[in-house]
Design a protein around this nucleic acid. Structure first.
Lengths: 201, 201
DNA sequence: TTTGTTGTAGGACGGTCATCCTACACCTGC
DNA sequence: GCAGGTGTAGGATGACCGTCCTACAACAAA
């Protein structure tokens, strides 16, 4: 906390505001108020709003990477790891209820703005995709791993979207349960022994 | 075409622009340019931007209702009707590729803006939900009908979101195929005879 | 012809936005 | 003490936004 720079604080505040209000609907003043900093002083840290966005995306990529690594430490079995992903829908329910999935909603917004950082934002999705794929490979689904990863991604995305529209936790719980059952059917005939903790490179 | 009022043209142009650029990112000038009308003259037709949004939502509700009725005429078997819904992902691919699902993205945006018309927009979702539920009831899944409807809704939403992020048509085709297969498993043991064309009321 | 309604054109308004500039406080090294 | 880098404060700028107003064209009814 003490060693965080003003720059870090700006990016963290922007991260939250972009999630809750959207990128475009968040002004410099909003961020300035959140960080308790002079509005005009932003130029010293970030030349443009797009630069803040890129920093926010980088932050999210970093945080996601850390989270995935943590999950790998906490759960050795790939099924349990994938379950961690699925369960974000419940653990982050209080936010998802109002603002949906931070990744999906950002990508959607940037697509409509035809923003330069669209591809950069999609990298957060790709991070999850690659990680999920790796888990499915470990489960023995080498050929279908990417399709399975995309399927999990899409499923959770859809649930998040409907969750924020209807604010219905029972629906989310039901879908999470279904996803876990579906996952189980892809786990049962997998060899239990040879899971490697090593990722790609 | 000839009997359309200026008002209709405004709403139709706004409908398209809200879909492609988002509600907030679309200005009065944008709509005015599209309709070839004086910018300041909007006040005569719509007192506020929110009023245009409500008109757009009403238009979408009307169009959706018409489409569902058309589907009912074209397909007598509930499975085929639900398939029509699933296949929008492919028939509207050229738009979904860039802008996602018009319903989901609007609801998501309005949620972040904390806009008054959030509930109104969610009615478009509810329209699909109710219709899908009815089809599942006709398929003999009286008890689970709503959950199944929500599942189809969520699944297609997620696919649309990832489709607009990765622009990958193969993925969409694959998921559509899977959805149809999944649907089939809920159709096979349904009684083939007694499908009623009558809806609720 | 006059009156009134309906619709349009174009610009004025107050506000907000991203951006940019300048003045100033703080600190470190000389 | 002084110079120079680092960070901050606060306001200026110009563009754009939603909103609103007024003048005017077109047409129908009186």
């Amino acid at each position: 906390m003490s060693d965080k720079t003003t720059c870090d604080h700006i990016v963290e505040a922007a991260d939250q505001l972009f999630y809750r209000q959207g990128y475009e609907h968040t002004s410099f003043s909003d961020i300035a108020d959140a960080v308790q900093i002079s509005r005009g002083n932003f130029y010293y840290h970030f030349k443009t709003k797009a630069e803040i966005l890129d920093a926010v995306i980088d932050l999210r990529i970093g945080n996601t990477r850390k989270m995935l690594e943590r999950w790998e430490g906490e759960a050795k079995h790939p099924e349990d790891r994938i379950k961690r992903y699925i369960h974000i829908l419940l653990t982050n329910w209080s936010k998802i209820k109002y603002f949906g999935c931070p990744v999906g909603t950002l990508c959607t917004e940037l697509a409509k703005l035809n923003h330069t950082s669209q591809e950069e934002a999609s990298k957060i999705f790709t991070l999850f995709r690659t990680w999920l794929r790796q888990q499915f490979i470990l489960l023995g689904h080498k050929k279908d791993a990417d399709a399975l990863a995309m399927h999990v991604l899409a499923w959770s995305q859809g649930v998040a979207t409907l969750a924020s529209t209807f604010h219905d936790k029972k629906f989310v719980s039901k879908e999470v349960k279904q996803m876990c059952e579906w996952l189980k059917s892809y786990t049962e005939n997998a060899t239990q022994t040879e899971y490697s903790t090593n990722q790609n490179k």
